[in-house]
Amino acid sequence: MSTAVLDRDPSAASPTPTSPAPGVSFARILDAEWTKIRTVRSTVWSLIAMVTVSVGGTALVCWGAASELASDESNEPVGAFLTWGLLFGQIAALVLGILVASSEYSSGMIRTTLAAVPRRGSVLVAKAAVLAGVLLVLGVATTLASYLAGNFFLDREGIGFALDDPGVLRTIVGGGLYLAMLGVFGLALGTLIRHTAGAVTVGIAVIFVVGNLIGLVPGVVGEWLEKLMPGNAGQMVAVVEWFDPDALDPWVGFAVFSAETLVLLAIAGLLFSRRDA
């Protein structure tokens, strides 16, 4: 990065001669975005909500359902319950992603951000990277804790899963990946819509409402639309077993969801670069 030479009267020389060359670099944008995300309470609250709802929800359901699942009449996929709380905990990841973009618009801070870093594409990529990193780490912790809590109750009924049972490790890592990608999905929505309430409404509608209703479209079209909806496709990687036998293979589903998210992010980036801030 080249040094910015201030072409002006020496009497106005800097009171603080700066040692490292000043200037914007991608590493510095990342550092700035990391500083931003860790210095607001909404981040902390969103993450606390994500962890507690996911883990608490899983523990609650497994505690309540374990004995019935263990009975002979049950043909429910037991593995689907190990990360059951994620169904609701994921809303926090979505909202956090939305807030990373929309709160800059509601506060007017986007202008300060773009005055400091006019390279808009880099700003969006840095936001996505920081957000995904935070959510990946806490997401894996969430799914691990969720598994441990849920499995505690299943184990007591003799229907528990070991860490090396098929799909368990994949679920723990995949849950983190899914939450990270969902956050980026929210970031793209927030950047597109620039309004917290609007983006949250659209996000929840797309992930939950439309995802559940679109199967009503008759025939094979409805079947495929249901499989390919972002939430439905992405969640497969975050469960050990699934309720829907027609669903996509976990990694295929996650790849579909990732592609959908990156397309949305690219559209958001394009508009972000063109629109007035």
Binding site: V24, R28, D31, A32, T35, K36, T112
Partner: peptide, 13 residues
């Protein structure tokens, strides 16, 4: 913190 993230973005000490 507001000034800190700004400083970091431009490599200001």
């Amino acid at each position: 913190n507001h000034l800190l993230w700004m400083a970091k973005s431009n490599g200001i000490p």
